[in-house]
């Protein structure tokens, strides 16, 4: 079994510098990898980016992150990505990465994701330029997520995790006002995850939401926003799939 630690929305700033790092001290005893589901900063400034990088630098286990909307606020997302990379954090804007956890190949595909809403009441790529751009952004990121999850199979992943900031499903938004669901996630992300198959989907962003949900095809979804899990990180144990079964079968057969 491999153990995946995950947290989102740590929203670090000068006022809490050094605190999060302390909590990562014993991380290697609990987990093989740490996934960070975006909103690492409060305003996405260079100063905050530097604090996050210092906090996660040379962590006891590999750290894989996506950025969140707050990390884009000061339009310094590229510099923040660079600082995190230099600190040893793998930042996924799209694409995936593979880590070896004691002989088990864990593939992680990630992107920020975006909003739009959920099946039956989702926004469409129709009408004003702004509306089309909104939904197109979600669609492009979702398409990229599908591609990178599918590519992980070709690379021989034993287990696959989808990492986003925005939510792929409504379940994990329970507790948030219904009116803001379209700003919290999109079913397009779930569709990508279901089509490509995954063993777990992890997201943040919905601070008032709830931890547990599932995609229409049965992929477990976990909202790991810090205010939801109320601990430094949550840990999920994943069992390697039966090798006679193709990695993405669960997703693909039920399409």
């Amino acid at each position: 079994m491999i153990r995946v630690a995950a947290v989102g929305d740590i929203h670090l700033g000068p006022d809490v510098a050094g605190q999060y790092r302390e909590r990562l001290t014993g991380l290697a005893d609990h987990a093989d990898v740490l996934l960070v589901a975006g909103d690492l900063t409060r305003h996405g400034t260079l100063e905050e980016g530097r604090i996050v990088a210092d906090e996660l630098r040379d962590a006891p286990v590999p750290v894989i992150a996506v950025l969140g909307n707050h990390d884009y606020h000061s339009e310094a997302e590229n510099e923040i990505t660079e600082m995190l990379g230099e600190a040893g954090v793998t930042v996924l804007h799209s694409g995936g990465t593979m880590i070896d956890c004691g002989g088990v190949r864990l593939g992680v595909a990630g992107c920020k994701g975006f909003g739009g809403g959920f099946a039956g009441s989702s926004g469409d790529e129709f009408g004003e330029r702004e509306m089309k751009a909104f939904i197109r952004h979600t669609r492009e990121l979702s398409d990229g997520l599908y591609e990178s999850l599918a590519a992980l199979d070709d690379q021989g992943a034993d287990l696959k995790v989808a990492l986003t900031h925005y939510s792929p499903v409504k379940d994990t938004l329970t507790g948030e006002p219904l009116e803001i669901y379209p700003f919290l996630g999109s079913y397009l992300l779930a569709e990508a995850i279901d089509r490509a198959g995954a063993d777990l989907a992890v997201h943040g962003h919905a601070h008032m939401g709830s931890e547990k949900g599932v995609t229409p095809n049965g992929v477990r979804v976990r909202n790991v926003a810090l205010p939801v899990i109320k601990q430094a990180y949550a840990v999920y144990g994943l069992e390697k799939r039966d090798s006679s079964r193709p990695p993405a079968e669960a997703g693909r057969s039920a399409r």
């Binding site: 153990r3 109320k230 430094a232 990180y233 840990v235 999920y236 144990g237 069992e239």
Partner: peptide, 14 residues
Amino acid sequence: VIPAAVPDGEERLT
């Protein structure tokens, strides 16, 4: 204010 302590367990997804 969220205490954000280190977790004492894990959830096994099987």
